[in-house]
Design a protein around this nucleic acid. Structure first.
Lengths: 212, 212
DNA sequence: CATAAAATCCTGTTTTTAGGGGATTGTTTT
DNA sequence: AAAACAATCCCCTAAAAACAGGATTTTATG
């Protein structure tokens, strides 16, 4: 049985690289590619692959969200996350959203083929380096914050003081301070600098700074 | 005349992708690849290509520094920067260090070939999108900070206070405060939160937090 | 060698955060 | 219905950062 593979990545060179790596594999059929989430979903309405290799960073939607949506609509498709970074937070989220594996972009042909064959069997595949990270950073879990805390976090990142945030949200400064304290506690950091850094790294803070 | 091309990238899939894209180009000869700066430099001691496609993010040394070193030792080699991100700061630094062009990883075969042929002529090649960014973000210029300011910035991002930084760097707390003031001024922000956010977004702060 | 830039240090004041305690009202969730 | 959570508010203290306005020494660089 031939395994039908589809890829979603916004880097043409990566698509081409994977295609090239797979072209001599008789047991794998290349179905094509999409360069964003929208065209991926459009493609899936026509045909369904067995495995999707999905980049984490897409222009229109994060791979994490796309993964969730695809698994909801087509539960039988196996998804392998794909990215350059060995970021435990992303890997965890992908797996939580139904992904069957995670592959780094410096993987070899052998790893790639093995990953596809593993997830088809219903098993989980993780790159060697990824597994190490998952074990190593087991303690550094992504904090669960509330909606209000998120609002406050974003305003802190925008450079507002507690007082300015209070005015903006029509609440007392002491309330803002409490939210801030909770954020520091949940992120297990002791000041704003570390808080913003962590939040930026796990991509809680959007890149484009909205003008007020 | 055949153009000899070499590539330095730590992502196997990108190497394979470029190789695949170039394999039918008769005017281009594939010399091979390196997956880090060290093996690139080792290779150059044996043979010299005409063009090097160089990733910005390498495991052992930044592409920006490697670019400088290569151009110093082998001025006749043309270097094209390669990365996933359309980051004006990196592009500028690469060009300052002697690169002849900058290509995004979502470039097509045509762009890739055109880029190689352009830089061989001694001209500068920039991806279309890159050129747009260079123009678009002309106002939001990347601040030029000194080495010491960079050290302080990283320690701030690590969550250290001025006093802790002072102890670490064997300088006075007031000096750290001055560096901090200069950082705020150069980034045109008014507090630490905005500073760290901006620094994280232009990728001045490394992802993997070094353990002290 | 002269000038500019970088790195160092200082004295203040004001504002903002961090840390330690609370407490009350709703809203989920079990 | 009780427990857990979210969101709101309060007091107090100490530490840290931001703001202002200096100065000196070292290190590059034309």
């Amino acid at each position: 049985m031939v395994i039908k593979v589809f890829i979603v990545d916004d880097h043409y060179m990566v698509i081409e690289g994977i295609r090239s790596l797979l072209q001599n594999e008789k047991s794998i059929e290349w179905m094509g590619h999409a360069m964003n989430a929208a065209s991926c979903l459009a493609f899936l309405q026509q045909q369904q692959p067995d495995v999707i290799l999905m980049d984490i960073n897409l222009p229109d939607m994060s791979g994490i969200d796309l993964c969730k949506e695809v698994k909801m609509k087509y539960p039988s498709i196996h998804i392998i996350g794909l990215s350059s970074f060995n970021q435990q937070s992303f890997i965890q989220k992908m797996l939580d959203n139904g992904a069957s594996g995670y592959l780094l972009k410096n993987a070899t042909r052998e790893e790639l083929v093995y990953a596809i064959k593993t997830v088809i069997e219903g098993e989980i595949f993780l790159s060697d380096e990824v597994e190490l990270t998952v074990q190593k950073n087991e303690d550094s879990k992504v904090p669960i914050i509330t909606r209000r805390e998120m609002e406050v976090l974003l305003l802190i990142a925008d450079g507002l003081t507690n007082n300015e945030i209070a005015i903006k949200l029509f609440i007392s400064t002491t309330t803002v301070d409490t939210h801030r304290k909770n954020l520091l506690a949940k992120f297990e950091v002791k000041n704003t600098a570390s808080l913003i850094r962590m939040a930026a790294q796990i991509q809680l803070i959007p890149f484009i700074k909205p003008k007020n």
